[in-house]
Design a protein around this nucleic acid. Structure first.
Lengths: 332, 332
DNA sequence: CGCGGCAGTACCGGATGTTAT
DNA sequence: AATAACATCCGGTACTGCCGC
């Protein structure tokens, strides 16, 4: 059943050429005649030859693998899983493997698996020991969203234009009749929270209003959301509310309900990050589809482009979140 | 800054011994004196030596990596992400890397990355081309839950005792006053759905009752859940309801509410798979904590144990889901 | 003499069996 | 009887050079 895996030697012998010629033919390099190439390829196919990755890596110092670093503690957000498979699928198409990297405690400075060609980091900060260790390898890093604290050290990034998106949402709410829009924002620490906060405040200021906002955790507890929303509704006369952090739509709806507001008519509610659940709530909740999978794919493709120095592509790609309008912002 | 990475040669030279001696010392093998070993280790530490994985793999045909295969289409279930990081963390402790494998279309039979020592598969079926390809590699496979259709071909498994768990839940509901318990079950296809269905029917039969159940998808839509729950409540006099598929608690609550039932008192509701959301719903929902992370770790540890043939361990480990009792089954 | 096409071969970095001390 | 040095090999890649025209 296992007559040993065929090696390049076997292929070369079967095709009646030298190892070097076989190697060239298989890698589609110049220096072999079309007939020879064809014979080699046929032999390889017949034998079921597969290159031995470690052997190739040993010689070339390229590993055909990239490390993927997801934010610690955020494993419950479906965004990241979706993102991860975007990276994996794109990598698969290019014959690369994706290594899922472990998170690091703050005091742990062991380097990450060294035998990768580079890394993809999502929503990273240099506050994170794992991210620092990755940057310290000196290998190319592509980030999804700006890597806070490591701005000059990434080879490329795929980022969202949250400013345009949020402005669009604020305009949408205004068009549906909102006059006083409050926001529950993620606490400082990520590029995203910074962008959301300043955009919200600027937009309000431009219209001569005063911002009404509360900050809660990046991954909020129901109580936090409840308290923030309850507080806003109790102390301010608002007719629309935007909740930023993932997972806060359901508790926000709940809190609004308890405050006696009818969401969708008398209070417009929008979440920032879309989640499957938003289509299941009553009313269904308006939010931005961030297209996690596509962004994951884009990161990997940017990585390979940079690595091959193929086109000196734009190092930063910008994507616009797509607003999914649902019943919660229907309007009166 | 980068005077080339130190190799075993460098370490040996620095320690004043041969390469072979250094190799032995670093791998803690017999054949070198304690003093020599110490000198080698010190030299390695001083130089920041890290073994070159490809070189080692080339020689030993071990790769220090395992492939992880998650069910396709299930990327939105937080269970799997949590599981994945359980595997990753355990692997990290053992110095192994985890390669996240891509899903395969039914007609695609390209083999998965060959340079891994084995695979971990979760909730797999041989209906899945990706799973078949993995089994065909002949490498050891550890599965979480039984691998449907590949029973004889896995090296080990970590499975839940759903029967005992579900019986416990049925008893719990009974203790809280339930007399007629209905169930919304996952459609056939996984080991889990089979076990849930037969356990439910058996338990009911043992008490001389008649089962009241509906089947919905493994990853149900809100409408499906709504229809199933609505139908049960409209046509049967039930005082308790168990919903199996992940994500169905929220829409089930909704449907019960619309049917005029007060969940927690006049209708007891329990979900099978615990989710963070269950603590945020009103009322909070009773369900089983499946400890995804721990199970992921157990899979990896089982894998390494089997690989090292260390203890001829039990090939199948059984875990009991832990019931988390919340307000939805408080009772009248 | 130049050039395309291919064979020969020195590595890449470590693991391991064999031979000296 | 222990240790350590030496020689090979793992499977490719890439450089050098020979051959014939």
């Amino acid at each position: 059943m296992t007559p040993r895996k065929p090696t390049l030697h076997d292929v070369a012998a079967a095709a009646g050429v030298s190892i070097a010629a076989a190697s060239f033919a298989l890698r589609d390099k110049a220096g072999v005649s079309p007939e020879t190439r064809e014979r080699v390829l046929a032999a390889a196919r017949a034998l079921g030859y597969v290159v031995n990755a470690p052997a190739r890596s040993l010689r070339t110092a390229r590993y055909g693998a990239i490390g993927l670093y997801l934010p610690p503690g955020a494993t419950r957000l479906p965004y990241y899983t979706e993102f991860a498979f975007g990276v994996v699928d794109a990598a698969d198409r290019r014959g690369l493997s994706v290594i899922l990297l472990p998170h690091r405690e703050a005091d742990d400075d062991t380097p990450p698996t060294a035998f990768v060609d580079g890394y993809v980091v999502v929503d990273g900060t240099t506050d994170d020991a794992g991210v620092r260790a990755i940057l310290d390898t000196g290998r190319p890093v592509v980030s999804a969203e700006h890597l806070v604290g490591g701005e000059g050290r990434v080879a490329g990034s795929v980022v969202y234009d949250h400013e345009t998106a949020l402005r669009g949402l604020l305009d949408h709410l205004t068009a549906r009749g909102a006059r006083r829009i409050a926001a529950v924002l993620p606490a400082a620490g990520t590029a995203w929270s910074r962008e959301l906060t300043t955009t919200y405040e600027t937009w309000i200021a431009e219209r001569g209003g005063i911002p009404i906002s509360r900050a809660i955790g990046f991954i909020p507890t129901a109580e936090e959301v409840d308290a923030a929303v309850g507080d806003i509704l109790a102390t301010e006369r608002v007719d629309a509310l935007i909740v930023g952090p993932s997972g806060s739509a359901a508790p926000a709806l709940e809190a609004a309900h308890r405050a006696g507001r009818r969401v969708g008519t008398d209070l417009l509610l929008a979440a920032y990050v879309d989640e499957p659940m938003h289509a299941l709530l009553t009313p269904t909740v308006t939010s931005f589809d961030l297209e996690a999978r596509e962004v994951g794919e884009a990161c990997l493709e940017l990585f390979t482009a940079i690595q091959d120095a193929d086109p000196p592509t734009d190092r930063v790609q910008v994507r616009l979140p797509r607003l999914v309008v649902r019943a919660s912002t229907a309007g009166p």
